[in-house]
């Protein structure tokens, strides 16, 4: 029994879980921004993919992976802007708008990859943001093995969780953002600009998803591949719901899903098909939505465009 446990839960697996969780953390934080403001962002997957591509592209042409991150951030933000224009100004059904972005992202990245590099499937290798070791921490037994040495973006994701938490619950802007997602008319009557708030939230959402994508192409790996996000945007959405629309909740859910991903290799060795493990995030999310783990209450105004009379 103990042997089995050690086989699945050991420092190597846990460190891998953290790496797998990182893109989910960025993107689910992005999801929180949009949905807390009342806009469904099912386009996270596409925004991630565009971010992954732009990160690779920028890194390729400049040789600067840091500029790649900025490029991914801007590209994601632009996709967020597109979603905001459709969902907030033109009051398009938000699921339709997000789905359109997902389809667009697949097409445009495949097309640009061939057009620019004349290759199919995988981009050339580019330079990536560095792996760092935290002094002292890496000397702690076990813990050091798990969190001591990682790509710098892993740490950035963890820091962002804290920042987003403080932003949402301690600052004026966070309070306003939450009020807009719950009762936009009430926010309007106390002088809060609902449209501006939603625009900024959805743009930020895209930027974070873009960073999540860039992690895949210029941090975890050093190249872009067709559809390399492989559903992570949707899993991030699930992590956001499972985490009840809070940053720390989303962190926990991302880690859990990352862990499921990390043990999947080992399960395969035992003859359990990987598809079973891939179902885990979705099953857990359904359980969360069904209300088995406390109530997962979404922001009240979610999905409803605000109309000024």
């Amino acid at each position: 029994m103990w042997d089995y446990l050690v086989y699945f839960v050991n420092a190597t697996v846990l460190a891998a879980a953290l790496r797998m969780a990182t893109p989910l953390i960025f993107t689910s934080l992005g999801g929180i921004f949009a949905e807390r403001s009342g806009v469904i962002n099912i386009g996270l997957e596409g925004m991630m993919l565009i971010g992954a591509f732009t990160g690779m592209l920028t890194s390729y042409f400049t040789g600067q992976p840091w500029l790649g991150l900025i490029g991914a951030l801007i590209a994601g933000a632009l996709m967020g802007l597109v979603h905001a224009v459709a969902a907030v100004t033109y009051k398009v059904n938000q699921v339709v708008s997000g789905t359109a972005i997902n389809i667009f992202a697949v097409g445009v990245t495949v097309f640009l990859l061939r057009w620019i590099f004349d290759v199919a499937g995988t981009s050339p290798s580019v330079s990536r943001v560095p792996v760092v070791t935290i002094p002292l921490v890496n000397r702690i037994p076990v813990i050091g093995q798990i969190i001591g040495t990682h790509n710098i973006m892993v740490y950035l994701a963890l820091v962002l969780v804290v920042i987003v938490h403080i932003f949402l619950f301690k600052t004026v802007w966070g309070l306003r953002l939450r009020s807009v997602g719950e009762h936009p008319k009430a926010a309007d009557t106390v002088g809060i600009d609902v449209f501006l708030t939603r625009y900024l939230a959805v743009i930020t959402s895209g930027a974070l998803a873009g960073l999540g994508g860039a992690y895949l192409s210029i941090a975890h790996l050093s190249r872009f591949g067709d559809q390399m996000t492989a559903g992570r945007g949707f899993i991030a959405l699930a992590a956001m719901i499972f985490g009840k629309w809070t940053p720390f909740g989303a962190l926990g859910a991302s880690l859990l899903f990352g862990f499921a991903n990390a043990v999947q290799m080992r399960l395969q060795e035992l003859g359990i098909p990987s598809q079973f493990v891939q179902m885990v995030p979705y099953i857990l999310t359904m359980i969360a939505l069904a209300g088995f783990i406390g109530r997962a209450t979404p922001p009240k105004a979610i999905g409803k465009p605000y109309k000024k009379e």
Binding site: L175, R178, S179, E182, H183, G191, T297, K300
Partner: peptide
């Protein structure tokens, strides 16, 4: 805004 506290509602905006 119902999920917010009384106090947060007073100061909102």
């Amino acid at each position: 805004v119902e999920p917010l506290t009384v106090f947060e509602n007073v100061i909102l905006g």
